[in-house]
Design a protein around this nucleic acid. Sequence first.
DNA 1: AACATTCCTTGCGCTGCAGCAAGCAACCGC
DNA 2: GCGGTTGCTTGCTGCAGCGCAAGGAATGTT
Lengths: 237, 237
Amino acid sequence: MSNENRFDRSRLTALPAFAGLTRDELQELLQRARVQKLEKGTALFEQGDEANRFFMLADGRLKVTQVTPDGHQVVVRYIGPGDMFGCVAVTGQQSYPGTASAAIDSTVVAWSAVEASELVEKHPKFGAHILRMMSGRVQEAHARMREMATERVERRVARALLRLAREAGRRTEAGIEIAMPLSRQDVAEMTGTTLYTVSRLLSAWEQDGLVEAGRQRVVIIKPHALVKIAEDLPDPK
Amino acid sequence: MSNENRFDRSRLTALPAFAGLTRDELQELLQRARVQKLEKGTALFEQGDEANRFFMLADGRLKVTQVTPDGHQVVVRYIGPGDMFGCVAVTGQQSYPGTASAAIDSTVVAWSAVEASELVEKHPKFGAHILRMMSGRVQEAHARMREMATERVERRVARALLRLAREAGRRTEAGIEIAMPLSRQDVAEMTGTTLYTVSRLLSAWEQDGLVEAGRQRVVIIKPHALVKIAEDLPDPK
DNA sequence: AACATTCCTTGCGCTGCAGCAAGCAACCGC
DNA sequence: GCGGTTGCTTGCTGCAGCGCAAGGAATGTT
């Protein structure tokens, strides 16, 4: 308990979300927060739930998904340690636009919506951080729109893997392992394709020694080769 | 000049962007702003330009585009009267992620980046509005990602037209006319397809009397029929 | 150890859509 | 009014990727 708190204190102070805040401010933020463990596979909130809490991920990894009216699922993004999410609770919307569930065992820091709003008002720096984060989120989303609109599947998948490796990669002797369970279906839902196509791509890449693929597991052996697929360096002449 | 100011005062006070602000606060916001006319076709800022100004559209319509490294152009969104944009100037990024150009003659209200930041800090309500707007922007972008990932072209195009009609539609005797020049290419760049496909779709729809299509001009004759294409009401049984 | 469940693979057929090419139509500037 | 420019249409071809189906492999459960 006090153990958990100490963990938070030391880890969180370093995060960009809290940069520039005084010790006292931080103290207040954390005092008002509630820490919650989340077991792998369980949902923190579901699409459509009343948006009454604002979060920061302390540890683990969450997957944010949306389902379309006709039942198609889409992975909107993955959340890593230090990321803030559930922003709609701060902007006064009523319901979460997506579902957040734990890809691995995780720990979140939660504020109630009213508290979050108060804190933002009281500590402008904190609000500014949220604003900056949202701005990044918009740009990220636009980038992915652009990708979906213009790039073909192979490249989108390569990009997705590289992004995941950057966010959640762990160096091993073989290469960079994506340190969370990741099914073909997951990748398909990130890139707007089908699990069949992802499977075929991974098989081909494995054949060529670019990656090592297993059940819910991907290790990138030759990142540079994958980058070449992802980027298409325009005919150097 | 004073004419222009009066115009602004009366029009702008009603906008959601300024809701809840006192007369004095509004006064200050507007006093610090600079009004700028923008002729159809000209760019207000270009992708990569230093982000040193924050804007609100007073009148007209702007198109925000991005180009991919390999030269593909994408329409990120259209901006209508009352919309705020160029938010990166507030969040302290360096450069605009896209190009904003006038689809028709337009008028913008501009603040310098430093002024905008000051104003946000001084008037939390204003900052909250921006935050809410950003939140909406994220959701909108996610919705379009979802669309691109799961829906087929026909539906995406139908949706895009309906969206445009809602944002920029003008009732005429024939139907709802999209009140700005809109080429097949534009629609293609909004929906991630080609001008060929858009042309074919519009031709087919015109055949069936759903729309009336001309050079850079679209009139929606039977919105409900287009909605049916866009939504795919799941087999009512 | 046997079973059910979940995840992955791969052959095959099919089709939605891209993309060229060629021609037409509307608008612009002089 | 003429020539140039820009935007639109449409036939044709090709293929990327979808999605079924059937089987295999890993994992969890009792």
